[in-house]
Design a protein around this nucleic acid. Sequence first.
RNA 1: GGCUGAGUGGCAGAGUGGCUAUGCACCGGAUUGCAAAUCCGUUUACCUCGGUUCGACUCCGGGCUCAGCCUCCA
Length: 465
Amino acid sequence: MLHIYNTLSRQKEIFEPLVPGKVGMYVCGMTVYDFCHVGHARVLVVFDVLFRHLQAAGYEVNYVRNITDVDDKIIARAVENQESVQDVTDRFIREMDADALSLGILKPTHEPRATETIVPMVAMIEKLIASDHAYAADNGDVYYSVSSFDGYGKLSGRRLEELRAGERVAVDEFKQDPLDFVLWKAAKDNEPSWDSPWGKGRPGWHIECSAMSSELLGDEFDIHGGGMDLQFPHHENEIAQSEAATGKSFARYWMHNGFVRIDDEKMSKSLGNFFTIRDVLKAYSGEEVRLFILGSHYRSPLNYSTEQLDSARSALRRLYTALKTFTERGGVFAPPTELQASAVETFDAALNDDLNTSEAVAVLHDLANGLNKADEGSEQAAQLAATLKQLGNRLGLLEEDPVSVLQRAMGDDGLDEAAIQALIDERIAARAAKDFARSDEIRDKLVEAGIVLEDNDGKTTWRRG
RNA sequence: GGCUGAGUGGCAGAGUGGCUAUGCACCGGAUUGCAAAUCCGUUUACCUCGGUUCGACUCCGGGCUCAGCCUCCA
């Protein structure tokens, strides 16, 4: 039984989908004007694991992750680069896809682009105007009237008076209330624009998600996710728009992942203290980054540091080493039986408890430990190995070939496989002749190049350290 | 100022009203020609002050500290 912490109620709730056996899930994706950073990686990974877990639980999941491809920042970037908006967004969508692939992120069911959903957006705005939840201002913009919606603030736990008291929004003479937000922006020169009943313009950010989710998931759906920072105002505004326009309740479970931090400060574009996924992947594998992210609970802050990534690397290697040793001993994966049922049960229970990934990862380590201890060639070893791989896969881990992973060079150490093997052969000969001085000399030389030798079961294998 | 959330061993990070998290690092032992890998074992905890309780790191209250949101942001 899956339990999810729902931001709306601020407690864990039993997850019950609207339609038995099916789940509709919407996650706010990227605004594509730059490379994704580690904070984006966290959203991708966290909801990817939820996607996988729901599917493993037997649900048919309709997972929508949108792409915001029209926005002030995108336009600014296009001007800055002297290229078209379309070129900017196409390029960064490709880059995002490449990053997602490296991180082992499964493709969502749908990845709608805002610019391809303009008609429904306009329709929704018309509905809001017709029901007095929105108004067209003299400057050509259309605003949502925050005070027209009773439930405003229910997600973020704020009341309008409190928001007004802490007012930091610049007063806009065209707004009836400073807290009102824009649904439609009148076009400026040289900006992408679409026709509308209020003249040429483009949609505001919040209406995009309301319209895209309705289009692909219906007016009411199960799970809506995104980063903590979207709770207010973005998600609050989505609720106000959608519920006012449809008269139905919007998403039922709201999930928000915590931030990635650097030196106890939020990683963000505006602070400039971010690392792109691209940069991190130069030194670490996608699975290493994944394990780093899954090591802590998705709602907790996650501090970024190379020490943490190194630690994730060592931990992942431990798992792969267990699989590698098993295979080298001639082991063949066998279907798990009741013997491993308790591990699977613990693993499921962990993920069912609001996606407790660190506990799920602990199960992997227990399995690896059991595998390392199991008798060579035993049925138990075969089953443990299969369970380890199977559960690892459910987290998007252990999907690669163990030997390739352990021998992979993250940089160029100038040694190819043949050269390494030649030195190993020479060392084997030296050892056979009890020339341990020469044997150790070769091993030290390899260590210097980042190659570690392992003499196991009478055979010598190597890995990069 | 308002509203959230958090404070666990050297580091990271789960969890529980009394019973080993897990990983990384460290130390000791087994194994090894020596290592590496692996196994076994030891050591290092639960911000602070009160309260509830037979018993609290775990529940309640105060305090301190930190982070986030209240403006674009995953």
